[in-house]
Amino acid sequence: MLKNSFIALLVLAFGVLLFHGVVKLYKVPEKLNRTAEFYNSNEASQIGAANVVTAVVVTYRGLYTLGEVTVLFLAASVIGFFLKRKKKTAPVDAKPAGSELMTTASKVLVPGSIILGVYVFVNGHLTPGGGFQGGAIIGTAILLLALANPTYSISKKVFHWIESISGFVFVAIGLAGLLLAGGFLDTRFLPNGEMLSLFSAGAIPLIYSMIGLKVGSEISGIILELNDTQPNQD
C-alpha cells in the first residue's frame, strides 16, 4: 500500500536522523560524570547500602520513586474503576478446572515464587534486586495462580488492604525522615549498621519492603481484575 510505504519511509528517515544524532553525540565515557561520581563515592559513608542503585532509587531520588508508585497506583485504580462490574450470578458449581499441568505447577511454584519475591525485595540494598523486581515476581506468582484456577475468584480485598497500608507506611517513613533526619524520605534516622548485613543502610530495607508489597499487590490486583472480566468460555 502506498500509504504504508510512505510511513515506512518516514520512520526510516527518523531512524537515520536518530542514529546519526545518537552516534554523533555518544562517545564511550572515560570517567563518571559529576552526579554519578558523587553518588558512587559518597554513598557508602552517607547511606551505607551495598547497592548504589538502591540508594539512588530510595534515598537520593526517593521522591521520584514515590511519584512512580503513585502513577502505578493510579493506573491500577483506573483499571479497577473501568472493569467494575455487577456481581455475576453464574452458578458456582459449573466451574471448568484449569489444566492438570498448570494446577500441579502452581502448587509447586507459587509458594516458592512468593518467597523468592520477598527475598528479592528484603535484600534490595545488598543484591541487584529490590522492591520493583520482588513485586513483579509476586505478581507472576499470582498470575500463575489465576491461570491454574481460571474461574476461582481470588479476593481482591486483601490486596487492596496490603496496597493501602504499605503506601501509607511508605509516606510515614518518609515523614519520619523529615522529622528525625535531614529531609523527606531521608533514611538515615535509623543507624547505618554494618555494611553488607541485612539490617543496614538505615530505613532502606523498610522502605523497599513497602515498595515491594505495594508493587506486588498492585500487579496482582491488575491481573485479578483482568482475570475476573473474562467470560466463562466452555
Binding site: P29, V57, E68, I79, L83
Partner: peptide
C-alpha cells in the same frame, strides 16, 4: 558504572507495565 540510568530504567519498566495494562483495558 553510573547508577542513575539504571535507577531510571528500573522505575520506567514498572511504569511501562502500568501503561500497557491501562491501554489493554
Amino acid at each position: 558504572i553510573d547508577p542513575v540510568p539504571q535507577a531510571l530504567v528500573l522505575t520506567a519498566i514498572v511504569i511501562g507495565f502500568g501503561v500497557t495494562a491501562l491501554m489493554l483495558v
